[in-house]
Design a binder for these strands. Structure first.
Lengths: 108, 108
DNA sequence: TCCCTTTGCTACATATACTGTAGCAGCACG
DNA sequence: CGTGCTGCTACAGTATATGTAGCAAAGGGA
């Protein structure tokens, strides 16, 4: 039996939901994408790439697929990507995070 | 003038504080480390590695250094790593996130 | 003293994730 | 037809993470 790769372990860290969520959000651009779609914004894949400092389409599509499978983001044809109800719930947790960021910027 | 590398851009995304924070937290293991140190836990570097699925020491040290420079984590010699007051403030934003994770696990 | 253990931390080769550029098919507008 | 969008993909190159090993320093016996 071949040893399971670490990457697989990373994906199967589904024990505690918070771990799976942290795992998902702790990937490059994921938090940023969710942030850019806050407040009912809907952006096309290209507009989203532009908003995210011209991130490469490869990883952008990968993240969008992950977020869609996670039920946080959906694609409305002819409109663009936007948050699902569940995704909006997530961004509600970001409001305090934003306020914290302001305080954090004034260092410590 | 040589084109500035993307990595440099990523690091200099300091315009809006939330972007810098999202950039910091959106790196592998960063969210996880902060999570493991919640509720006044203090863990040695090795205990922290164990808690984080035996993450490699290389990246663990890199993340801990970043978090220390960000003023979110500190090292108490003879005790281990722990959150600063600012870091604890951050985890307060995680409590609702944890509750959200539970709902999210029951899918959508 | 010497040995053993643990601390934070580092080297380095390998594996994986991401970037940057190019380009695809599908659809709408004219 | 052509032009310009859309979502999405290929692929070579580069940045980043992994896994194993090991360092010096500090502490605790014996």
């Amino acid at each position: 039996m071949p040893a399971m790769k670490k990457t697989a372990v990373r994906g199967s860290r589904t024990g505690r939901p918070i771990m799976a969520l942290l795992d998902l959000l702790g990937r490059r651009w994921t938090l940023r994408i969710v942030w850019e779609l806050r407040e009912d914004r809907s952006l096309t894949s290209r507009a989203l790439r532009t908003a995210c400092d011209e991130a490469s389409p490869t990883i952008m599509q990968a993240r969008l697929t992950e977020l869609r499978e996670a039920g946080l983001v959906e694609l409305e044809p002819g409109d663009g990507y936007r948050l699902t109800a569940l995704g909006k719930e997530l961004t509600e947790n970001f409001a305090p995070l934003n306020r914290f960021a302001e305080r954090w910027a004034r260092h410590a």
